[in-house]
Design a protein around this nucleic acid. Structure first.
Lengths: 317, 317
DNA sequence: GCTATTCATGCGACAAGGGCATGTATCGCA
DNA sequence: TGCGATACATGCCCTTGTCGCATGAATAGC
C-alpha cells in the first residue's frame, strides 16, 4: 500500500526537534541554533511533510512535541553525541592532537635524519604517532604508492635515468631537501690519494666496491661518462665495511657525504672529492594531496626544518 | 589563530565516506547510494573543503581513505546505527507498530463506547498502548488543551450555549459521531406516563432529578424554552440511582438514551420521549493537527467505526 | 482590554547539490 | 606495446532546499 516511505531524518531536523524539546518554543530553539524563527518553522513543516507525521502541535502560545517528535528528541541525544565524538576525533586530527604518520627512509637516513625527525615530532606534537620503516628509495616509493607509508625519505643521484621520482606521474610530490657531494674513498696508499680531487677517468684499472643498486647504478653512470668501465669486485652498502675495505686497499668506492656521518673514516683510508664532481639529492616524497593531511603536513614540516650542516648536507634553498 | 572551524559533518558525507570505505571506489559507493559518480565526487570535494582535510587520496585507479577519512568511517557505524534506531522507531510509529494514545471520555461512555474502542484497538494495532481516563466533557476538553490526553469523547446538548466545543477556536477538531434522543424517565404512576410523548410544559410542578452540570444545564434550558422552571430537588448523575428514584416516584428526570444502556429500567419506572424533543450529540475531539499522528488517527478511525445501534445511538452520516 | 510573545505565511534570493557530457589517468589483456 | 574498460575530475546547467525579512493571526498575562 505504502511505498517504502523515505523516512529520512536529517541532522537539521534532529537538532531542531532536540532544541524545541529543550526550550519549549520554536523561537527559543531558533535563537539557540542561530537561525531565524521562520526558518526553523518552515524546516519543521518540511520535515513533517517528508515524514508524513506531525512533530509538533500548537499548544497555546508555544508548541508541544507530538509522540513522534518526542521519539526523535530521545534519539537525538544518542545521535548528536555520536556525531560529537566523530567531530571531536576529527578536530583532534585537524588540531594535531592525534594522528599517525608512517615514514619510510633509506638506511643512512635511519641513522641521521630520522632520529632527529622523530624527536622533533614527539616534542612538537606528542599526540601524533610516527611509524618508521627502513627502505631503499625504489621500495619506499612503492610503499608510498601502495599506501603502506605516508611519507618517504629518498635520494636520487643527479642525472639518474632510473630515478623513481621521475615517473612522469603527478600522483607523487617530491621536495628536494638537501644536496650532498659524492666523494671517493680510497686507500692512503693509492697513488691518487695525494690529489685534492681525484679524476675518475684515471681509475679504470682499480677494483671498485659497489653499494646498493642505486649507488651501483650511479657508479656505472659516472664512470661511463668519462669512458671508464669500473671493475666491480666487491659489493656492500655497509659504509663501515666499505671504509675498512678501502683502508686495507682492497678497493675504492664512491660514497655520499651522508654515509661518512655514520661511519668514522678509519686509519689508512682517505676521502677525496671527484672530478667530475657529482651530487646526490635527498628528497622527501608524499602522495599528492596527502600533504594536506595535518599529521603528514606536520611531519613534512619537521623534516624540512631539519638542519643538515651537522652531516655535511647542503640545504636546497 | 584558527577560528572555531565549523567542522560540521553532515550525514551525506558520513554515508559517502562509509560507502567508500566499504566498496573501495567512488563509483561503487555512488551506485550503492543511488547517486551519480560526479555527484559523490563533488560532494567529497566540498566536504574536504569544509573540513579543511582531505578524506581520500587517489590510489591507482581507485581511491583510498586518508586517516581523517578512516576516522569518519569508523564513527559512521555508530552514527548510522543510532540514526537507524531513530528511523526504526519512527517507522514503527508511522506503521502503527508502536505508539500511545491517551483518551478521555465521559462516564457513560466508559461503560459503552470505550470498552469497544479498546478492544478494537488491541485487535487491530496490538503495538499501540491506549490509556483511558474518565472525565466530563469540559474537563476532557481542558485535558486535551493541556496535552494530558490526545483524544476526548464528549457530548453536547443541541443548542447548549455553554458547549465547550464551540469556543470559536480552531485549535480543536470536533467530529460528531452519534445523536441520541433525550428521554424522560417518570414513574408509571405519573399521570402523564400513559402518553407516548410527554409534554414538558406540563411538568412545572414535578420534582426533578438533575445530573451532571451539563445535563442540569440542558434541563434548565429545555424547561425555560417552554416557560417552565423546574423544581430540582435531587441531584445525581448515577443513572441507576436516577431510575430507582424515578421508580419510587420520588422525581422525574431527563436522561440521554445512552444512559439507559448502562442501567436497566426498573419495575415501576417508565421512559417516554419528550415534547418538544431534544437531542444530545456524542463527539470525538482532537487537537487540530494531531489527527495526523498515526496512533491518534488509528484510534479516531476505530471510534468512528463503532456501531451505536446497540445502544440506541443514531450515526451521524 | 491592551500589549508583548509566539507561530504561520508569502516573497525574494542565494547556494548547495545533482545529472550529464567530457576529459584524463590507470589497469589488464592481447 | 597498444587498446579497451574502468575510475576519477571538471565544467555547465538546472532544480530545489533553505534562509531572512516583512507581515498577519492567535495567545497569555497584566
Amino acid at each position: 500500500m505504502l511505498e517504502p516511505m523515505e523516512t529520512d531524518l536529517d541532522l537539521h531536523s534532529i537538532r531542531i526537534v532536540r532544541a524545541i524539546s529543550e526550550y519549549g518554543t520554536i523561537s527559543a530553539a531558533a535563537r539557540s541554533l542561530g537561525y531565524s524563527q521562520p526558518a526553523v518553522s518552515q524546516h519543521l513543516r518540511r520535515a513533517e511533510a517528508r515524514l508524513g507525521v506531525p512533530l509538533v502541535v500548537r499548544a497555546g502560545r508555544g508548541v508541544r512535541l507530538t509522540e513522534p517528535g518526542q521519539v526523535i528528541a530521545r534519539h537525538a541525544i544518542a545521535i548528536t553525541s555520536a556525531l560529537d565524538a566523530a567531530n571531536g576525533d576529527l578536530a583532534d586530527l585537524v588540531g594535531l592532537a592525534a594522528g599517525t604518520v608512517r615514514v619510510a627512509g633509506f638506511p643512512t637516513a635511519s641513522s641521521t635524519l630520522v632520529p632527529r625527525l622523530l624527536q622533533r615530532m614527539r616534542d612538537a606534537h606528542p599526540g601524533i604517532t610516527v611509524g618508521y620503516i627502513e627502505a631503499e628509495p625504489p621500495e619506499a616509493i612503492g610503499m608510498l604508492r601502495d599506501g603502506q607509508v605516508d611519507l618517504a625519505i629518498t635520494f636520487a643521484y643527479s642525472g639518474d635515468r632510473a630515478d623513481p621520482h621521475r615517473e612522469g606521474d603527478g600522483s607523487l610530490d617530491s621536495v628536494p631537501l638537501f644536496t650532498e657531494p659524492v666523494v671517493i674513498a680510497l686507500s692512503e696508499q693509492h697513488p691518487l690519494a695525494a690529489e685534492a680531487a681525484v679524476d675518475i677517468a684515471l681509475l679504470g684499472n682499480d677494483r671498485w666496491i659497489a653499494g646498493c643498486p642505486l649507488c651501483r647504478g650511479h657508479l656505472l653512470a659516472a664512470c661511463e661518462a668519462v669512458g671508464v668501465t669500473p671493475r666491480i669486485e666487491l659489493e656492500t652498502d655497509n659504509a663501515v665495511a666499505v671504509l675498512n675495505l678501502v683502508a686495507r686497499n682492497l678497493g675504492i668506492a664512491l660514497l655520499p657525504q651522508l654515509a661518512l656521518a655514520t661511519a668514522p673514516v678509519p686509519f689508512g683510508a682517505a676521502v677525496r672529492s671527484t672530478v667530475p664532481s657529482s651530487d646526490r639529492s635527498i628528497q622527501v616524497v608524499v602522495k599528492s594531496g596527502s600533504g594536506r593531511v595535518p599529521s603528514i603536513a606536520a611531519a613534512l614540516e619537521c623534516i624540512m626544518d631539519l638542519d643538515g650542516t651537522e652531516w655535511g648536507l647542503d640545504r636546497v634553498s
